[in-house]
Design a protein around this nucleic acid. Structure first.
Lengths: 196, 196
DNA sequence: ACCGTATGCCAACGCGTGTTGACATCGCAA
DNA sequence: TTGCGATGTCAACACGCGTTGGCATACGGT
């Protein structure tokens, strides 16, 4: 609600986009602290001062570069017993082509804002999705948290730490192994909770 | 094989220990880049140059501070259907009292050596433990990797990102939810693999 | 053709960093 | 007591960082 201008193309849009692209790559590869404005500017083939002009500060640049939407699909169309499988497949696809989440994850260790961002993404976006499954609303938060722990753990070991067995696993096998885990977190119940 | 001296106490052992304690705390709280030698030295109430004298460099200090042993218990004593539960419980206990793993995890984003260290820990120590279960040796690496993905994901969401629902979950409930996941990664089979 | 503005480059500032070497002090052995 | 290495302090260096302001140039409306 701050700007009502619908689409005013600026001559510098190409530069802005180049900066953002370089920033995402550097933040994803090096983390927040190691990714320097000078390096990002060099990648984008412009002067470091341009970054300041267009994004105000390094924090501002990161905030712009780390805009991220899980783009969760409409899960009501999916058979209820295939939810975990569908979610894992979706996340794998979502990450392979967009390094924003990797940048966010790397930065979360150094930049408090990045951790907050992740918290929001996986609290708001995931929780609302989980809430549609009709399980006890009191458990929604926990279920979303558990799903996040496995999904982020997968991203961590696959893209940041790069554990060889996890990196080598083909997507189909990841789905076959991790899918049931997510499925149980979404619709199952913990161990030792008595008979059904 | 480099030093045959068994136990030669030095007068500076207290200082060395203070440095190491402060370093672990700072690395865990701030990550590798943000944790400055000056701050660590101030915490330990000594001069920054002492850190250099005793540990050579910031890298050397981190290497010393990030020495970490999973201390996996003897899992052959545990009933085979309680393995997941036992492992999750062990990791929770291991972490609550020792911030080394948190430091390692935070640093993994910025320090390539830290990621390598984690890779070693979870490849060597975990794999050898998994290998004792008699499952097909060809799947040992993958099973260890999957276990690592869930365990590290739990640590990430609980101690680094601090997702509220995961932080709030009492240990017993974490065990009840995550235990079966680890159990399946250890001894189960992926989905859609045909009849038993 | 003109002028205001957007776009871009350059040089520099202040700061905090890891690291170094010179100097003081302590404690133990001879 | 005398010496000597271990321990600790202090000031400084060189470097890279985020950030700033001034200046050249190109564009687009009039």
């Amino acid at each position: 609600m701050t700007e009502a201008v619908p689409a005013r193309p600026r001559r510098s849009d190409a530069t802005r986009a180049a900066i953002l692209r370089a920033a995402r790559a550097r933040f994803a590869a090096d983390g927040y602290d190691r990714a320097t404005i000078r390096a990002i500017a060099a990648d984008a083939r412009i002067d470091p001062s341009m970054v300041m002009r267009y994004y105000g500060s390094k924090e501002g640049l990161f905030a712009a570069a780390a805009e991220f939407d899980l783009r969760l699909p409409d899960l009501t169309q999916v058979p209820p017993d295939r939810l975990g499988e569908a979610l894992v497949r979706h996340f794998l696809n979502r990450w392979e082509g967009d390094e924003t989440l990797a940048a966010l994850l790397r930065a979360a260790s150094a930049n408090p804002g990045a951790a907050e961002r992740i918290r929001h993404i996986f609290t708001d976006q995931l929780s609302t999705a989980v809430a549609t499954f009709g399980t006890d609303p009191a458990t929604t938060g926990r279920r979303a948290g558990l799903v996040a722990s496995q999904i982020l753990g997968l991203a961590l070991t696959r893209y940041i730490v790069r554990l060889p067995p996890v990196v080598a696993m083909p997507p189909a096998e990841v789905v076959a192994w991790v899918g049931p885990t997510i499925q149980r977190y979404l619709t199952g119940r913990p161990e030792g909770e008595g008979p059904c």
